[in-house]
Amino acid sequence: MRVGYAGWAFAAPALLIITVFFFVPVLSALIVSLTDFDLYALADIRNLRFVGLDNYRQLLHAPQFWRAVANTGYFVAVGVPLSLAASLASALLVNSRLAYFSAFFRTAFFAPVVTTLVAVAVVWRYLLHTRYGLINYALAHVGIHPIDWLGDPHWALPAIILFAVWKNFGYNMVIFMAALHSIPVDLYEAARLDGASRWQELGRITLPMLRPTLLLVSILTVAGYFQLFAEPYVMTQGGPLQSTVSVLYFMYEEGFKWWNLGSASAVAFLLFLMILAVTALQVRLTRDAQAR
């Protein structure tokens, strides 16, 4: 069958690449995570030991790993809702029937999304400077004392969250805007005939109609925020006091700084499991909410 061969032939190059450079490494990561692959093993493979689940066990007992988990959890738990709220609010504003120049505003809000993360992180590092940064300068005008954004362990992660929200909210805004477009206009007209206020419209029509989009967007955003890495790498190098070490940053240091590839692979899998668990939880919660 000619078409059958052609189908395979057409799909083969891409499948080959995906298999060799994605599936094989993922499976090998699972195997490596059961060994103590380290610098000694890199120098001489006879120094490699199979250690079973030891890497996982050690990680689960390592305070530094848990700190990374807690930091990432904080980043996700605060960053995602903030980010979604900003996206939704800006989508509602830009989408409003009363708004002029909505194309301009949409582009302005979206611009940070396409910028290079490393470059704008460098920019923000200067904006956040304790003594010469514009953010503290602006805050001083409303009577707030200078905050040591990237030097104070309590403020470093919030500063990175602010930066991440600024960088990312435009992406979900676009998705929300499309979803808002697809809400039938007559729903709003009917509500207005019933004398509903704008806030009631939002609560009774817009938000319920957006629920599927909200779920999807929050799943994607959570998965993305779990993969925090470049921001701390550029802005704080994990400091101060390890307060910005994310799970992925931890994996990077463990793997490519100290070359404990076994333990780093275990970190990668634990991160994967965390994302899976949170996603499952989100789906479950939304289903329960819909059932009610």
Binding site: Y5, A6, W8, A9, A12, P13, L16
Partner: peptide
């Protein structure tokens, strides 16, 4: 894989 027996796009090279 059956790719070998099918017309291979020469421009891939």
């Amino acid at each position: 894989m059956t790719a070998g027996r099918s017309p291979r796009p020469p421009w891939l090279l």
